[in-house]
Computed example of a mutant assay.
Amino acid sequence: MTSSAWRRRRREPRSSAGENRLWPALAVVVAALAYAVLPESLLVGPRLAIPVVEMVLLGALLATNPRRMVRQTRWSRGASIALACVVIATNLVALGMLVRTLTSSEPGGMPLLLAGMQVWLTNVIGFGLLFWEIDRGGPVARHTVVRNRLAPADWRFSQDENQDAITEVAATSSERSNWRPEFIDYLYVSLTNSSAFSPTDTMPLSGRAKALMGLEATAALLTSLLVVARAVGALGQ
């Protein structure tokens, strides 16, 4: 492919078919189930209240884009971001309750360990969804808008800078293949940030990206150090 062809392809949207809705929808279902089975002391309101809200929002979004994400309205964009924020906010509240329970009583090790794992998992999913929703105008824009009209990027992926690598690596770069990030890419960013408590191969560029990654890493650190460590210690007693 010539350099002019690369530049022409870079200006074109990746695919008019849009991104598959299945994986982010499954992630929301997993987050709702993880919240629904938390101990009673960590819930906000009735056990199924938050999962029902999440499923209602997901159902509305599925009605807009049931299989491929090709349509976007101001309402659907707001609902998508609201859904991710509900997952994150309720999980942070659950984490706060978990820390309070940990410091004010002597709970059993296994229930605490399981609750900590559920909170950590939901943390990864919630922030992965929000990263996916806000970067470069959102999932619909990333796949339907020409590259030079996309909103500024919040994250820089390795594919965005490997066009000068050896041929087989450069072939998948953003410049040469018109690669654009999908949900799995943001979920991986969230997973590594929650595991390493810092960026790994994907760098935050904007202030909001740095703030969100900092918040996620702090929550993951609290879960790991204050909750899981205490639970493991209680198991040995």
Rank of each mutant, 00 (worst) to 15 (best):
V37I: 15
V37C: 11
L38K: 13
L38C: 07
P39G: 02
P39C: 02
P39V: 05
P39A: 05
S41M: 07
L43P: 01
L43F: 01
V44E: 06
V44W: 09
V44H: 06
G45A: 04
G45P: 12
P46R: 14
R47D: 02
R47V: 03
L48W: 14
L48M: 11
L48H: 08
L48S: 03
L48D: 03
L48Q: 06
A49D: 02
I50C: 02
I50P: 04
I50T: 13
I50Y: 02
P51S: 01
P51Q: 00
V52Q: 02
V52F: 14
V53R: 06
V53N: 04
V53H: 03
E54N: 11
M55W: 08
M55S: 06
M55I: 06
M55F: 09
M55L: 15
V56A: 13
L57W: 04
L57G: 02
L58F: 05
L58K: 06
G59E: 09
A60I: 10
A60L: 15
L61Q: 07
L61G: 05
L61W: 10
A63T: 13
A63H: 11
A63V: 15
T64Y: 02
T64N: 09
T64A: 10
N65P: 08
N65I: 10
N65G: 08
P66K: 11
P66I: 11
P66V: 05
R67H: 08
R67P: 00
R68T: 12
M69E: 15
M69G: 02
M69V: 09
M69K: 11
V70S: 14
R71V: 13
Q72T: 10
Q72D: 11
Q72I: 08
T73V: 07
R74K: 11
R74A: 14
W75E: 05
S76I: 10
R77D: 13
R77T: 06
G78K: 03
G78H: 08
G78T: 03
A79F: 11
A79K: 01
A79L: 15
A79N: 09
A79I: 08
S80D: 14
S80F: 15
I81G: 00
I81R: 13
I81P: 00
I81M: 11
I81F: 04
I81T: 12
A82W: 10
A82G: 12
A82I: 10
